[in-house]
């Protein structure tokens, strides 16, 4: 099967709502979005605090956070695997090879991206916004929300970036999910499997599906983001 026919076939399956293909897409979407949902609130708070609250060792904390941006996802998977394995400390939870384990892993992977983007966004924000809010009698948390609202586009960019990182991530998903058909197989692990089988065209076709999916998600998020042009 060549690339064109494989791609056409992949899109045919897509629009014929092939249960297996959509199952894989569903796993990818569900796991990535839930992971972002779990990671985002904490990461945004951490990023904001790092940007606004001075404390000893803040530089070090920022360096550590930014280093985690290049932390290999497969190492996240490995650490989680060791924790969740039957003989590991959390083995009794029976979480290994479940979607929950994948969500946990992807939340860990997305966390530094979201935090680092928020940090950069808040650092880049006009200091006057927060000071004005405070001087107008806003509470500290109210002022924080005002600042975050001012930099929402940059925080959104962090969400896009985090989504991009987890939706395309294979190392951790493979290790803690196990690529089990119908349960933990997502688009990247399915691509990895097709490659191992020598079905390169199918793998690339799945890659197109992933890109389409990312396009759809980003377009719909972008709708909420509004115009976001230069002011």
């Amino acid at each position: 099967m060549n690339l064109t026919t494989a791609t056409v076939e992949a899109f045919r399956l897509l629009f014929a709502f092939d249960p297996q293909l959509w199952g894989v897409i569903w796993v990818s979407l569900r796991v990535s979005l839930l992971a972002l949902l779990i990671a985002a609130p904490l990461a945004i708070v951490l990023g904001f605090l790092l940007a606004t609250v001075p404390f000893r060792g803040r530089r070090a904390a920022v360096i550590v956070l930014q280093s985690f941006l290049s932390f290999p996802t497969v190492v996240v998977g490995l650490v989680l695997y060791v924790l969740l394995a039957r003989s590991g400390p959390l083995g009794s939870l029976g979480l290994l090879y479940t979607q929950e384990a994948m969500i946990l892993g992807q939340a860990v992977i997305a966390f530094p991206v979201l935090a680092a983007f928020t940090l950069a966004a808040v650092q880049g924000a006009d200091r006057i916004v927060r000071e004005t809010a405070l001087s107008l009698g806003a509470s500290r948390s109210r002022a924080a929300f005002t600042t975050l609202f001012e930099v929402r586009f940059a925080v959104m960019a962090g969400l896009f970036n985090g989504f991009g990182r987890v939706i395309s991530e294979v190392g951790c998903a493979m290790m803690v999910g196990g690529n089990i058909a119908g349960l933990t197989r997502n688009i990247p692990t399915a691509i990895s499997l097709e490659t191992a089988k020598g079905e390169f065209a199918q793998g690339i076709a799945l890659g197109f599906v992933l890109i389409m999916l990312a396009l759809g998600i980003n377009a719909s998020l972008n709708y909420f983001q509004g115009e976001g042009g230069m002011k």
């Binding site: 394995a85 090879y97 196990g178 690529n179 089990i180 058909a181 197989r185 692990t189 399915a190």
Partner: peptide, 14 residues
């Protein structure tokens, strides 16, 4: 599983 022998043995063990 859709994985290699070593991974599948680890999975079977777990």
């Amino acid at each position: 599983a859709g994985q290699g022998m070593g991974e599948v043995l680890a999975m079977a063990g777990n």
